[in-house]
């Protein structure tokens, strides 16, 4: 009998249901874990996602052919039961559980085990086969609690405010940006967001999420007004004319990669805040253990190293190759926006 989920040149495929999960090529029916570009790609005829992700996917893929169901609810397609469960990665991110004739597979998408206020609370799902990401699947990645990181960020902002400097945090527009904003102490100063971030903020607010007040960064804003303020913008904006012409700005980046001095130096930022939307080493291992899965398929990240380690620990683990890696490392240079 064919496997419940198979990997082919278009993505992860369920033949019985004729459904793809996060396909990288156009297909008939695509179930999407979350709206980042390396998981939600345009061109398919029909998209299915969780309610919280619907508006974002419509916006990002410029399509109306998106249907959604709430977390935990089951959708049957030709006898295969699909359901979405919080992945804790970004707003509306989900693990997809697939059940057929008593066999359960879970596609994790990207996930984070520490709870935040926006991304839903991740919980491991019992399954037979677990397809897990491993972006930070090395023992050098262990996160400090986010409360400590936010207190570092606010302390840094407050100091810059006192020095009449502008604080700039680079964060990807969907997910990281909103998480950073939610941790900022708005009593310090005004929060400005780059248009790409503010567009997402609006959609997310319309979907019922509570994101605190932010201001759209107008290129014509008097520079004097920015003194002491916080700017949240995507990483690319750091090299823009707007930023490089500012004299009194302190640059920071918020990302799991900031755990490495090398990555921090390469971005040439003043501060690197280790704030990741992915599970760290311990989070990955604990999750895998908790799923009680007989088979582990690893994808997205240090797949060779991580699968070898799992094998040594006694798991039946192997690599699920995807189009955009095939390599152990994929960092901010790829389409993954979620670092």
């Amino acid at each position: 009998m064919a496997k419940l989920l198979e990997h082919n040149d278009k993505g992860i495929y369920c033949e019985v249901a004729d459904v793809y999960i996060d396909p990288w090529k156009a297909v008939k029916k695509a179930f999407i874990t979350h709206a980042h570009a390396d998981h939600a790609r345009p061109g398919s005829s029909e998209y299915v996602c969780v309610d919280a992700s619907k508006n974002i996917i419509k916006h990002r893929l410029s399509t109306q052919n998106v249907s959604s169901i709430p977390f935990g609810e089951t959708l049957s397609v030709n006898g295969v039961k699909f359901s979405f469960h919080p992945a804790g990665h970004i707003i509306g991110s989900a693990q997809i559980r697939v059940e057929y004739k008593g066999e359960v597979w879970v596609v994790s998408g990207d996930y984070k085990t520490e709870k935040d206020h926006l991304s839903g609370e991740f919980a491991p799902l019992k399954c037979n086969t677990f397809i897990t990401e491993c972006t930070f699947g090395l023992p050098v990645f262990n996160w400090r609690p986010q409360a400590e990181i936010f207190s570092d960020i606010n302390e840094w902002w407050a100091k810059n405010y006192a020095d009449k400097k502008i604080s700039f945090v680079s964060a990807y527009s969907l997910g990281k940006a909103q998480r950073v904003i939610s941790g900022l102490d708005a009593s310090i100063g005004k929060i400005y967001c780059h248009a790409a971030v503010e567009n997402i903020n609006e959609i997310v607010r319309d979907s019922g999420f509570n994101i605190q007040k932010t201001f759209r960064l107008d290129p014509d804003v008097p520079r004097k007004e920015l003194e002491g303020a916080m700017i949240v913008a995507p990483p690319g904006f750091m090299n823009s004319n707007f930023i490089s012409k500012l004299k009194n700005v302190d640059l920071a980046s918020a990302s799991g990669w900031m755990n490495l001095r090398g990555a921090r130096r390469r971005r040439s930022v003043d501060r690197g805040f280790v704030l990741s939307d992915h599970a760290d080493w311990t989070g990955l291992l604990d999750t895998i253990n908790a799923t009680e899965a007989e088979k582990i398929l690893v994808t997205h990240g240090y797949v060779n190293v991580f699968s070898k380690y799992l094998q040594e620990q006694g798991y039946d683990a192997s690599i699920l190759e995807t189009e955009y890696e095939g390599d152990e490392v994929e960092l901010e240079s790829t389409a993954d926006e979620s670092v």
Binding site: L138, P139, V140, L260, G262, Y302, V305
Partner: peptide
């Protein structure tokens, strides 16, 4: 696994401190 991590981090002192 330590050696692989070292290769990614690129600095021995840092790799040790991180693991």
């Amino acid at each position: 696994l330590f050696e692989n991590s070292y290769h990614i981090v690129g600095d021995l002192a840092e790799t040790i401190a991180l693991v």
